[in-house]
Write a protein that binds this DNA or RNA. Structure first.
Lengths: 183, 183
DNA sequence: CTGAAATGAGACAATGTTGTATCAAATAGA
DNA sequence: TCTATTTGATACAACATTGTCTCATTTCAG
């Protein structure tokens, strides 16, 4: 079935704002093939749209994670998580950058939850010895975020093969922070 | 001596736009402690300011690079380059994101030159066996850019120690892409 | 001190964006 | 078919931003 007007608008907004954060609502509506009035009917104001966008990005990340099997090592789970998130690179990055992610309590709670889940996964990978314990958790998470977005961008602009992107992120993170390189 | 009004404005613009890309000229002038008219006197239009900003960012990167000794291995040169660029994280990232960097021929030529220099350095590091040859150059450069900005951000927000930031980037890149981990 | 240059403050028109409202056409469902 | 809902197009006022201009004041060099 055809995607709803609302979904089309959300997708258009994510794509448009990822490329140009200051894009106007006219730009977003036009890319969605919809009148600007319809956008206002669905989301009220620009803030309303941003809010819906952020919630959608969080939900998309959760949907991508839910299928990952937990019956394996934390290292393999991390690999699967990277594989799941790289294709969402634009949304995932949008999630961390947009201003509303720091003001709205409902949103910040969800983001904190996702960051906490990621930190717990990193801790588990550390316990397996795949990541050195002297590396700050915050750096691992920050590097993951940065590399995932870099991989999405590089693939999107045609510099690297799309199917290679998640592997490069995993290899960069795991090899770079491996316990054997400590000191 | 006191920095010139022009320099103060450029610094204010970089800081302000790095935090909020859509900031108004009023915001920039206010942070610099000058009137908006003065900003227009120095740079004409917003585009003029962006243009000057980008040239300044390129010059700052070059200034940071010029002191690096070449009488050592490419790997050590890369370490020094990272050390020099991380403190410029905001400017360096601004350099790659702003729209004018893709239209103005004078600017794109300079950016291409810097990217070429970085690619050549990466190639030399590969020849030393520190980076695996099967990793795309584009990915190394993209990962470097992403990690440098992540390090600057993490240090700026207090998540990691400022003096640890360059080392973490180097360790992440080199360890992660080392030849011994290939395959 | 004196004059030139730079600045701050403000007025002003032009422009783009936003949010709201209205009305006719299209669409979907009973 | 008939009706309710959704949409496109358009107009409109409110608002912020931008670029230009003027004039009084400050700053600085000679």
């Amino acid at each position: 079935m055809r995607p709803s007007t609302r979904d089309t608008l959300i997708q258009s907004a994510i794509t448009t704002l990822a490329a140009q954060p200051g894009a106007s609502l006219e730009d977003i509506a036009q890319r969605a093939g919809v009148g600007r009035a319809t956008l206002h009917r669905h989301f009220g104001s620009r803030d309303g749209l941003i809010h819906a966008l952020t919630r959608e990005a969080i939900a998309a990340t959760d949907r991508a994670m839910v299928d990952i099997s937990r019956d394996t090592s934390a290292t393999e789970i991390l690999r699967a998580v990277i594989e799941a998130i790289v294709p969402l690179g634009d949304q995932y990055h949008f999630l961390t950058l947009e201003a509303a992610t720091k003001t709205d309590p409902e949103i910040t709670a969800e983001i904190d939850r996702q960051l906490r889940e990621m930190s717990e996964l990193v801790a588990a990978v550390k316990q397996e010895g795949t990541i050195a314990t002297d590396v700050p958790d915050a750096w691992v998470v920050a590097a993951l975020d940065a590399l995932i977005y870099a991989a999405w961008t590089s693939a999107h602009e045609g510099w690297i093969a799309r199917r290679d992107a998640p592997g490069l992120v995993f290899r960069t993170i795991i090899g770079g922070l491996s316990a054997s390189d400590a000191g």
